[in-house]
Design a protein around this nucleic acid. Structure first.
Lengths: 172, 172
DNA sequence: AAAGATTGAATGCTCAATCTTC
DNA sequence: GAAGATTGAGCATTCAATCTTT
C-alpha cells in the first residue's frame, strides 16, 4: 500500500494498450479498439466460464454446435471456420473423439479427407446443454434494448468491412 | 472438391458458433455476439500480426506501452490490467527482461513487491516502433466516419456495462 | 506440385503450490 | 493469515515437417 496505485480503469485495454489522445482522430480510433478489446475479452471470459462448466473449451463448443446444425463436416472446413491451425483441428477432434462426442468418417471420393460426425451421445449432449448457454448469452446483452442491439450489430458489421478493406492488400 | 462445401460466411463466429433464429430476441443477442466475436478476432489477428513484426506478443506490447506512458509499475498492477495470471506476468516480465527492454526494481517500503521499469533501450524501442502501430490502428477503422466511431464506442461501452451488471451476482 | 490430415517441438498461458514479507 | 511474486506442471494452440492422395 505504500507503493503507487494510480488505477485508471478502462484506460488500457486488457491486452492492447495504446495511449489515448482525446483530440486527434488517432485517439478516436484507438479508443474504439481499446474499448472493444476490453469489453469483448470480458464477454469472452464469461462465455468461456459458462462453457467450461460443461467441461468444454470454446473451440470444442463451436465444433459441436457446427456439427449439430450443419451435419458432418470435413476437418478442413471446421478449421477454416474456427480459424485454428491444421494441427489444432486434428488435436481438437482427437479430444472430442476421446470424449465420445464425435467420430471421424471417411470421405467417399477423396481419401485424403476426413469427416467429423456427431455421435448419438454428442447429439444428446448438445441438445441437453446448449440451450442454457443461449439463455446466458441473451442475459449478458439484455441491458441494451433490442434496437440498440440491432444498431450495434450493424455498426460492428461496418467495422468488419472496414478492416477487411484495409487489409485485403496484404493477402492479394 | 467432390465433398460438400456449403460455405456460409459470417454465420458462425470464429470460436463461438450459436445458431441464429432471426425472429426471436435470442436471435438478436446471439447475432450480436457472433458478429462481435468474428470482427474482433479478425482485428486481433491483424494487430497481432503487426505487433509480431516487431518480435513482440500482444501482452509484451501492452506492457511496454503501459510502462512507457505510466512509468514504473508493480507486477501486480500490470497483471490486473492485462488480465493475466500471476504466473503469467512473472514469465512475461522475464521475457522482456531477457530482451533487455525491461528491468525489475525493488519497491522501497514493501519488500514483497517488484517494480517493472523500462530500460533506456526499451524506451527507445517504444519511441521508434509504436507510432507505426498507431497509424495501422487508425487505418483499420477508417472505413467508419468519426461520428460512427464515436457512436460505436458508446454502444460498446453500454454493452460492457450490461455484461458487468448481469455477471456481478456471480462474484458477490 | 498441391491439398488434406497428422505428428512433434515449441510457446504463451493457467492453475496450484510455495516462499517471502506484511 | 493475507498479499506479492515465483516455480513447476499441465494444456491448448501454433509452426514446421511429413505422409498420403489427388
Amino acid at each position: 500500500m505504500s507503493c503507487p496505485e494510480n488505477f485508471d480503469p478502462a484506460f488500457y485495454a486488457s491486452r492492447y494498450a495504446w495511449s489515448e489522445s482525446p483530440d486527434d482522430p488517432t485517439g478516436v480510433a484507438a479508443k474504439l479498439l481499446i474499448r472493444m478489446a476490453l469489453v469483448y475479452r470480458t464477454i469472452e471470459r464469461e462465455l468461456e466460464a459458462d462453457i467450461a462448466r460443461h467441461g468444454l473449451t470454446p473451440s470444442e463448443f463451436g465444433t459441436l454446435d457446427m456439427l449439430y446444425h450443419r451435419g458432418p463436416m470435413l476437418l478442413g472446413d471446421i478449421q477454416r471456420r474456427l480459424v485454428v491451425s491444421s494441427g489444432g483441428i486434428t488435436f481438437l477432434v482427437d479430444r472430442l473423439a476421446a470424449k465420445g462426442l464425435v467420430e471421424r468418417k471417411a470421405c467417399p471420393g477423396d481419401r485424403r479427407a476426413r469427416f467429423a460426425v456427431l455421435t448419438p451421445e454428442g447429439e444428446r449432449f448438445v441438445e441437453e446443454r446448449f440451450p442454457a448457454h443461449g439463455r446466458f448469452v441473451t442475459e449478458l446483452v439484455s441491458g441494451l434494448s433490442e434496437e440498440e442491439q440491432v444498431e450495434l450489430t450493424r455498426l460492428i458489421g461496418r467495422l468488419g468491412r472496414s478492416v477487411k478493406e484495409h487489409t485485403a492488400q496484404d493477402e492479394g
